[in-house]
């Protein structure tokens, strides 16, 4: 459904001048630096998938979504959605997709939610019956009722996001793009949004591509994750596979009953030592937890111990920080 090949977006940032005529100078200046917001990215998304696009701030997520929704023209590479180039014939293309940008609203600021939705019905030529049916569905699932008659400017962030999701789906798009749909929301609101996205994907068969910097979005929603950092695609696959590949380092924290000068042990490395507490790291492939504990208890008197399973969050953080996936 989506084909992206060696996609690039490079921004030229003009040198900024100050002063009264500074803006005019900036306009005609030839000095610039290049920001490679998206740098040679390739992937495909099949119909019906729910794909997470994960990366820290400034990674290039929004820029990718903007190209996929036709807002930005790529500076290199290829990009086709259903065989179409999004920025060509913009109107025909956007009529078939839905998009929500987390920090912005597509609704009219001064209008009650319901009036915005009715305007969108006309803009997208949604037949009356279909509109009412969809609205009824979304109204229950997103609990829109309490604020349908409230002007958009008075909505909370969570309410606004729910209204925007409804607005993006009224015309039954095949494809839904979400840029940071849970940004700034509390845990309960996040969960509600996630449930809805899952529902739309499973029950309506809508293909969803969502960006996030929040790993739990991906963990709870997506079978497949694309990890991006500094414009480069680092990983494309399942989170589980990522965990087995990079997240193998478990930790054993031991409180020793007596001070020892040498606390090293075969099969594990000491990563921290403070008073009587020693932290070892080891991998599943090298040694099992019980064997390691056995070895330690032969040499030292142990007061207490705990095994810490590696968490995916730490894994992803390590991927960014240590650039594990780059070659």
């Amino acid at each position: 459904m989506i084909t992206v090949q060696n996609l690039q977006k490079h921004f030229k940032l003009n040198k900024q001048y100050r002063g009264a005529w500074g803006s005019v100078r900036t306009l005609f200046s030839r000095e610039y630096e290049v920001v490679k917001a998206v740098d040679d990215i390739s992937f495909e998304v099949a119909r019906g998938e729910l794909v997470g696009y994960l990366g820290p701030n400034g990674a290039g997520k929004s820029t990718t979504i903007k190209m996929l929704t036709g807002l930005l023209v790529p500076s290199g590479g290829e990009l086709a959605v259903n065989g179409r180039l999004p920025w060509r014939d913009r109107q025909a293309y956007v009529a078939r997709i839905g998009a929500v940008f987390g920090q912005r609203t597509t609704l009219w600021w001064d209008l009650p939610v319901i009036e915005s939705l009715e305007l969108l019905q006309h803009i997208y030529h949604v037949p009356n019956g279909r509109f009412r049916q969809n609205l009824a569905d979304f109204e229950t699932m997103l609990e829109l009722k309490p604020f349908l008659n409230t002007p958009v400017r008075s909505l909370s962030l969570g309410q606004r996001m729910r209204a925007d999701l409804c607005a993006a789906l009224l015309h039954d798009p095949d494809l839904l793009f979400l840029d940071e749909p849970t940004i700034g929301l509390d845990v309960v609101a996040k969960e509600r949004i996630r449930q809805f996205i899952r529902h739309v994907n499973r029950e309506r068969g809508t293909t969803v591509l969502l960006t996030t910097h929040d790993l739990s979005d991906v963990q709870k929603l997506c079978d497949r994750v694309l990890i991006i950092d500094r414009g480069k695609l680092l990983y494309d696959g399942s989170l589980d596979a990522l965990q087995t590949r990079f997240g193998g380092r478990r930790e054993l924290v031991v409180d020793l009953a007596e001070p020892y000068s040498d606390v090293s042990v075969a099969g594990a490395t000491v990563v921290a030592r403070e008073n009587g507490r020693v932290t070892y790291q080891f991998t599943r492939e090298e040694i099992g937890a019980s064997e390691l504990i056995g070895r330690l208890s032969q040499r030292f008197r142990i007061q207490d111990l705990a095994v810490r399973e590696p968490d995916i969050e730490a894994t992803v953080r390590r991927i960014y920080e240590e650039r594990l996936l780059e070659n």
Partner: peptide, 14 residues
């Protein structure tokens, strides 16, 4: 500056 123009680009209208 607020990015509202993007929202216009997302709608199937002139």
């Amino acid at each position: 500056r607020r990015g509202s123009f993007d929202q216009l680009l997302l709608r199937p209208l002139n």
